[in-house]
């Protein structure tokens, strides 16, 4: 028993902390197993040849489908265009009809008012007279001053003026000076313009130009509000240059 213990003791002394040189390069193999290198992401069709064939056939199918679809769209396009053209025609017909109705109505109104004016006003007053409110209230109807007279008397100090006139209408319109710019004593000066029988905006501008001839000075700025009184539509036009050119 003693011999056994001695043997154990000697074995421990000789081997317990004994070291031996491990095989070279073993650590590299261990580390490869512990931290395996990250594999690059390779598409499956690169790894498997049969997948390449499948991918190629998918590509061909996709290209073919694109071509067929684009051709189908092309063939469908003329029908759509013709539909649009048809729609445009219908819309323009409706618009023309509506315009005709409006013109007829305007003519009707104009003729009625013309008759009334004939009954009420002198023939020379029918041809464009702008009369101030002040003048209307202060003076009797039959002695309304003309626009030229009004300009000379009150509107010359104004630096900006606005005329509201009918758009493509033969109905009476209001020509109005902008009150905020008025430096004169009268302020707002509306005036009733009798029917001129005008047919277009160009005609209206021509009339305005004639009527506001005296405003065409360096100090004055003239703009026009053109609108049909009957339908309550107003279009702002600020074209003093056009007026100057015309």
């Amino acid at each position: 028993m003693e011999d056994q213990k001695k043997l154990d003791k000697v074995l421990r002394a000789k081997l317990k902390d004994f070291e031996m040189a491990p095989p070279p390069m073993l650590f590299d193999q261990i580390i490869k197993q512990v931290n395996p290198p990250v594999q690059k992401l390779v598409p499956v069709w690169y790894r498997r040849p049969q997948m390449q064939r499948i991918a190629a056939s998918f590509t061909i199918l996709a290209v073919a489908a694109t071509v067929v679809l684009s051709e189908l769209r092309e063939s469908a396009a003329p029908a759509t265009r013709s539909n649009l053209a048809q729609f445009d025609t219908l819309a323009s017909d409706r618009r023309d009809n509506r315009l005709q109705d409006l013109e007829l109505r305007a003519e009707q109104l104009a003729s009625e008012q013309k008759q009334e004016i004939k009954d009420l006003v002198q023939p020379q007053a029918v041809t464009a007279r702008l009369v101030s409110v002040e003048a209307q209230t202060a003076q009797p109807n039959n002695t309304r001053e003309t626009i030229e007279e009004m300009n000379l008397r009150q509107l010359q100090p104004l630096k900006s003026r606005t005329a509201q006139m009918p758009l493509m209408a033969k109905a009476p319109a209001i020509v109005q000076e902008s009150p905020q710019y008025a430096e004169g004593p009268s302020g707002v000066i509306p005036a009733l313009i009798k029917s001129y029988g005008v047919l277009s905006n160009a005609d209206l501008f021509a009339i305005a130009k004639e009527k506001f001839q005296d405003f065409k000075t360096k100090e004055h700025y003239v703009s026009f509000n053109l609108g049909s009184l009957e339908i309550g539509q107003t279009i702002q036009l600020s074209k003093p240059e056009n007026l100057d050119e015309n």
């Binding site: 902390d17 004994f18 070291e19 031996m20 040189a21 650590f27």
Partner: peptide
């Protein structure tokens, strides 16, 4: 923390004894 240097150091420290 996957410190490669530390892994190597640990290996070098105990590889001899463990190989025995």
């Amino acid at each position: 923390q996957n410190d490669r240097k530390a892994q190597s150091e640990l290996y070098q420290l105990f590889a001899g004894k463990m190989f025995a």
